[in-house]
Structures are given as C-alpha cells and as structure tokens.
Amino acid sequence: MKPNLTTNPTRMAPGFPLQKMLSTLWRQRLSFIFLAPFLICFTLFILVPVFMAMFMSFTTYDGFHTPKFVGFDNFITLITQDQIFMKYALPNTIKFAFFVGPVGYALTFFLAWLIYQLPKSIRDIVALAIYAPSMVGGIALTVVWQAAFSGDYVGYLNNFLMKFGFINAPILWLQSPDYFLNIMIVVTVWMGFNVGFLAMLAGFDTVNRELYEAGRIDGIANRLQEIYYITVPSMKPQMLFSSVMAIVGTLKAGAISSQLAGGPVSPQYSGHLILNHVDDYAFQRYELGYASMVSIVLLVISYFAMRLSYRLFGPKEGE
C-alpha cells in the first residue's frame, strides 16, 4: 500500500526520499503518539492473533510440542475427510447465517421503519423494549430459554401448545435434533436487535424530508416505493454499518448453541456451527492447528459477506 502523502510537498525537508519521509514522520510524531495506545493493543490482540491463526493453520499443534509445518494438509483434510464439518457445521452455519443475517437484517429494517412511523414520544419506549433483550446478553437469558423450551410439562412452550391443543405430548425441544437449530435461530434473531437496530432507527432521521415531497411529485405512489427509491438510498451508510454489525453478530452467535445445549456439542450436532467446530477442536481435542484453520475459513467467509454488503450499500464511484 502506498503511503498517503497528505502533507504539502513544498514544506518537506530536502534530500533523499527516505530522509524526507523520516523528517515528515518526525513532524507528525504527535499524531503517532496519540495513536499509539490504540495501535499497540490493536496489534497485540487483533492483528497478531489473526496472523498467528493464519500461520497455525498450516501446522499441527497441540499446545505443548513445537508446531509442525504440514502445508495444506489441514485444508485438504477439511474438504475431504471432515464429515462433521461437511455434514453438520457447514450446512448448519449456512442456514443459520441466512436466517440470522439477511432475514434478520430485513426484519430489523422493517421494525425500525415501523417504529419510525410512530410519534417521537412513544418511539423511544417501543425501541427500548425491542432493544432490551440484546442488552441482557446471552448468558443471563440462558435461564429464560431453558425454562421456555424445557422438554417436560412444565416448559412454557409445551404448556402453551398443549393448552391450546396443538400438541398432545410435550416435545423435547432442546434435546431433539429436529428443533434445535430452529430454536437457535429464533433466539438469536430475538436477541439480535442490537446496535445495528439503533443505527437504522437513527438513520431514518438523516433522510431529507424534502425528498419525500419531491418523490410524490415525481410520481411515487406508495410507501413501498418510497422506501425503495428514497429511504434506502438516503440511509445507505447506516444500512452498511448495520449490516457489518449483523455479520459480527452472526459470527459471534456460536456460543448460543452450547448455552442452549448446556455442553460444548449440541444434540447429534444439530446446532453445530463452524464456531462450535473451532471450539470443539481447540478446547476438547487440542488440535490447535486444525482449529485455527477452521477459524481462518470462517474469517474468510465473513470477509466475503462484508464485501457483499459493501457492494449493496457501499458508496459508489463518484458519489
């Protein structure tokens, strides 16, 4: 990457390019001092771990012996031999990510839009009620989901469904592979109205009101067209921030699987996401090299998800 020469060239010291650069750097030292605390921590706990994971993904490493370089063996194993990954972790993650990502995102937008139609005094209360579950955090809510989806007569969902005659016998929601992933999705979407939701809600405020007037004159007939032609293009920046937050949320959501299952692995791998696969290999089997490789695959997937959101909502050339 080429350094960004933002300083005025005429003010630079004469001499060789390197010397020039050094003297400019020296004049800018204050900026770097201000930046230093962040950059040091960033390097130490974000940059280095990611590069280490990349390096470790080419090794076999158990945490005690020195890592042994094995080239692309881990990747080949993943594609050809890892049945659990191919049969459970990957399809589960794709399904989970689809519903929690794009579907959850659309839902977030829709809800935020509906709330925005309310008068301002009531808006905050409704927004708070919807934002609250994401504030509680997964750990504290585990008790709620365990009670709600409990497999006996006392479980709230079972009790409710039986009272209205939808089912005759209680269903083992959290022990049965048929329901586990779906419950995970519902729970995650439920808790997913997070910072991104607030960003969207705030984004509606940034839309220029006059555009709606202009739109009506130009023949926009209904609210849907208004959203499509005016609202969404006007608040693209917020939409982008929100979608990046949605990707992060989806990445992090692996923990919900073990929280609901009460153990590292969900019943018959029904809720096994890629992140659980990483944890399984790292902290149950101590195959750190292999686990790192899986986590790198996950990071690459999320990187492309982010590229896609930039495509959709990012600034276009000339904007």
């Binding site: 933002t6 990611v50 280490m52 994971a53 990046v244 923990a255």
Partner: peptide
C-alpha cells in the same frame, strides 16, 4: 493514515471469538 483507517474498517467485522487460541 489511510492504511490505518482501512485496517480499522476491515476489522469492524472482527469477532474475538474466532481467534481465541492465538
């Protein structure tokens, strides 16, 4: 500056859970 900003934009999607081991 643009390099630092670019790295920050990229790491917005960073989730610490993915690199627990390193």
């Amino acid at each position: 500056k643009s390099l630092v900003m670019g790295v920050i934009m990229l790491s917005l999607m960073y989730a610490p859970e993915t690199v627990g081991i390193p």
